[in-house]
Amino acid sequence: MDSRKAGNLLKETFSDAVLKIEEFRGETSVTIESGRLVEIMKFLKQNSDLSYDMLVDLTSVDFPDQKMRFIISYLLNTTKFNNRLRIKTAVAEGSAVDSVCDIWKAANWMEREAAEMFGIHFNNHPNLKHILLTDDFVGHPLRKEYDVKGPDFGQPLKIDLEKEEIF
């Protein structure tokens, strides 16, 4: 079953949870409600007509002007039918979305990365610690309000020789 048919099947099965189906440059994106995420993902993996067995990519995009500012985007691939399907869901700042680690182990590190970079919480994640950033890092660098230049950008390194301290 190709990705367009998969989108339609999803719409038939979960008519109340599927919000939108888009086609752009031959790629199908299905937007769903975040509360039904795990249920729909399980269906996508386990249904033998779909069998999306591979989570290729998981990431987020920040739209600060919108109320549901984070779009989480899951890219699925089926090795059986050879096509890709993108599932998108939106969450507001401070709210959480369920982890898909139990369905695809690949989600573990990608969810950790999305969590630290955007500040999204994933429920039931086994180990939601920082992965690329240091443990004591404050802030979420890929949010739009986070400046590329830090507060010390372009400032000379100040060294107090008497105290032997580097600021």
Binding site: F24, V56, D57, T59, D62, S73, L75
Partner: peptide
């Protein structure tokens, strides 16, 4: 719009997911 395109690099599937808002810089 948004596109995902991938190639088989020497390590595996290397993909780029680009979100455009219609300006001259990528949105994400």
């Amino acid at each position: 719009g948004e596109v995902y395109s991938s190639i088989e690099s020497s390590k595996g599937e290397l993909g780029f997911y680009i979100v455009s808002d219609g300006s001259n810089k990528p949105y994400r």
